[in-house]
Design a protein around this nucleic acid. Sequence first.
DNA 1: AATCAGTTAAATACAGTGTACCGACATGAG
DNA 2: CTCATGTCGGTACACTGTATTTAACTGATT
Lengths: 233, 233
Amino acid sequence: MKSMTVWDRPEPPPRPAPLDRERIVAAAVALADEGGLEAVSLRKVAARLDVGPMRLYGYISTKEELFDLMVDEVYAEILPEEQPGDWREALRGLAHRTRHATRRHEWLADLLGGRPALGPNALAVTEATLAAVDGLADVETVMRAVETVSAYFTGAIRREIANLRAERATGLSDRDWQRASGPHLMRMLATGRFPALAKVVHDGTEVDAEVSFATGLDWVLDAVAAKLARPTA
Amino acid sequence: MKSMTVWDRPEPPPRPAPLDRERIVAAAVALADEGGLEAVSLRKVAARLDVGPMRLYGYISTKEELFDLMVDEVYAEILPEEQPGDWREALRGLAHRTRHATRRHEWLADLLGGRPALGPNALAVTEATLAAVDGLADVETVMRAVETVSAYFTGAIRREIANLRAERATGLSDRDWQRASGPHLMRMLATGRFPALAKVVHDGTEVDAEVSFATGLDWVLDAVAAKLARPTA
DNA sequence: AATCAGTTAAATACAGTGTACCGACATGAG
DNA sequence: CTCATGTCGGTACACTGTATTTAACTGATT
């Protein structure tokens, strides 16, 4: 066999950095950020790590579990970094951070609320939230409060992303879209069977998504404030 | 050729009832009701109609479109059958009917809020809703009102179903589950890093899903009522 | 009436998916 | 040195959504 010096000896095949959940999840998140949730396949994740597809099953037991891990990864971005002033600020902050995280990772909208979030980061977020509202009323009332608020922002975020995608698909802004191309919709409105809807589409002005999110959120927070004051109601 | 009487002539092969969207959607809904959304494949839908898979593409152009049609089919069950007393009754009714429809068709939870609902039935529901709140305030405020309420119940329904599935998977009730088996969760709580969460899990009593849904809904409706009274706020 | 066009249905084909399984290889024991 | 053991990678299977090709039937035209 030909002898080689140290210098022309080929680099040992760059032993792929030892695999672990973190690297796998990071790759999956990157893939999803680029091409949406349906661009995440175990094969593509594995390929991005220069590894056979089956290797992943040493660290994950199913694709659903990978999704759960991805969600929890993003919950790290949702964790408040500093103690909130009061419960209201805590809940408002949680809502807005969740929204912003979803804008950074649109695929989160598809997963939000789909399964209970029990990863360590999600638990930390829950803990921080509960700590901020602890003692304001009896446990039941407090729970109802945070669940109501989070039901609101979960639903609102989802709708916002859904609309954003619809706009993107037609290349038109939400309002213009309805009156211009929405081929089906315009025909429907033209039938005269939906006068109230037609009026809204006609009269409504375009509202910034963030302010409409914030407005609805404030309403809900007002409601919660009233109930926290009078826990029996 | 052997002659046959009318009686022993074999039934003509039951020409599969002429295909149309309705039959396709009905089959898909049935499949989803039985085995969840992921049990719906174009091949299985086609098989249930005794038809080759490709036939479907004459009536549907993609699987997503089929999902949209399924959603709209269910919106027919959500349509109010009689004029509501006032706007509050209208919104509350809409929320509850959506919830009940989702309990009949659990897969709806996976689709709710995922894309804008623009089918005829969904539009009819929207129309009825807008008609019930029309004139209570300026268009913007009214829109914010119905969007806030529907964000709430969308999110709440999704979470309810998510929890229900989690319970079902472990065979335990929500609360018992947390303290009993949730292998991960209990270990986490035991670390003492989540005192507020631990307190809630420990002190909280099990609350009926329907009443917690209704309670949160009433809170949100209260908030909306306040804003509709003073549209400028 | 026979042929052909054109439309419709069917079958085949392809590129992918999640994951079960199995055979090779490395490592440690006797 | 041999053998057992257990880990790791690849192959394989059953299935997905959909494009495309082939077959069959219908209706019109010579």
